[in-house]
Design a protein around this nucleic acid. Structure first.
Lengths: 214, 214
DNA sequence: TTAAATAAGTCAATATGGCTGACGTAAATT
DNA sequence: AATTTACGTCAGCCATATTGACTTATTTAA
């Protein structure tokens, strides 16, 4: 199978009869021919597809999946974080997290320690093994980023950074930036509410009573 | 539940005893303190998390999931595409695609037509309904992109475009660009091999004989 | 013209990672 | 003392992916 073989398949891009003129029925005159930023939508899909595929093989060697990767990554980057914070970041339920977290703890990649101030908490840390795995998973991603940025004019890093930051939900943006860039952590904590804010529910008559979702 | 409440939880970022000094055992002197581009890795996660969450509610109204969205999107953008091409883009198996595709066809969002040149093909088209849904799904994503780009200096669009393009696997890059930007389609076809190229297997002794994967 | 490759579909079984709902327990807050 | 919070768990369900095997047309190549 050749490297780049264009197959010359379908000349008429019309589902109607072979001789029917090409007309999309529901195309209003004021409707733009293509969706604005359709290229970016697709580029984002492809970029993320390949970006996330990098660590997959290494993960499989430990019988882990992408869910484990995400947990391991954020715990490694935020040692001592609360389970609640992790839930807010990943936007999954306690039960979903529970499964993968248990496996990571059982296999000694993540360690849980009671919070010294609030003893209800089980603060999360990576073990040395876990830290090493987290590193080996993020390194191909980091290299991909380096290669990509190297092709761009100098100063593009910041444009990309700003772009991605601006793509985040407005309510979560500040908390995310806080989390990412506060590497000298001055007794700070993650704000679950800010990373994944609750809907502003009307006062009283709260339907969210016994829910797992924040 | 307050809007932005920082909880001031865990001052010591060390899993060891409360009074133990903070030292990561496996931190070689030549190991960088943080992974390069760790911020970008996380920004990409958050950006994509929120980017993909946009169409979810609309999707649920039709009992569809993200898999349906992806199929619908690419078929809408590439009318007359082959099933094989779709498999290569999505990087899933024929069986996985089969299910969602069948549902989309059954519910009259996608239409299959035998290829006029190669009658083995079942070329894919969106119906008017399908096209409308595809539009309504991509529009919030497009708006998010517009809002994000509006915050950046002029000319940033191209930087972002180039960045995302450079993030794609090198072998697939050209085919992707071809697919995205050839809106005036001159009897062209997608190249499945280029979008998701096969590993260059050694001649003879091909283990990939009866596989579903390209 | 026979053989092989390709496009597409299918059946069956399995795994992963999500979800809801219902409970329980310990600790902190009010 | 009552409530809220942090965390965990059991049970079941669903969506989406996987592998492997097999069939049917149809096209292409030996």
């Amino acid at each position: 199978m050749a490297d780049v073989n264009f197959k010359t398949a379908n000349p008429p891009a019309s589902p109607d009869g072979d001789a029917t003129p090409l007309t999309r029925p529901e195309l209003h005159p004021d409707e733009p021919v293509i969706t604005p930023h359709c290229d970016l939508i697709e580029l984002l899909f492809y970029a993320y597809r390949d970006f996330t595929s990098d660590p997959d093989e290494r993960l499989a060697a430990f019988d882990f999946g992408r869910a484990h990767h995400r947990v391991l990554h954020f715990v490694d980057r935020n040692p001592g974080m609360m389970v609640t914070d992790l839930l807010a970041i990943l936007r999954i339920t306690k039960q979903s997290l529970g499964r993968v977290l248990k496996q990571l703890v059982d296999k000694d990649f993540i360690l849980q320690k009671p919070g010294p101030l609030d003893r209800r908490q089980r603060l999360l840390y990576t073990t040395p093994t876990g830290h090493a795995l987290a590193r080996s998973l993020s390194s191909p991603q980091s290299e991909r980023l380096s290669r990509a940025l190297a092709t761009l004019p100098p100063g593009s890093d910041d444009i990309v950074r700003q772009f991605l930051h601006a793509m985040i939900d407005e309510d979560a943006r500040d908390a995310v930036a806080e989390m990412i860039y506060n590497t000298d952590r001055p007794a700070r904590s993650l704000s679950a509410a800010a990373v994944a804010p609750t809907m502003a529910l009307p006062e009283g008559a709260d339907p969210d009573r016994n829910s797992d979702r924040k």
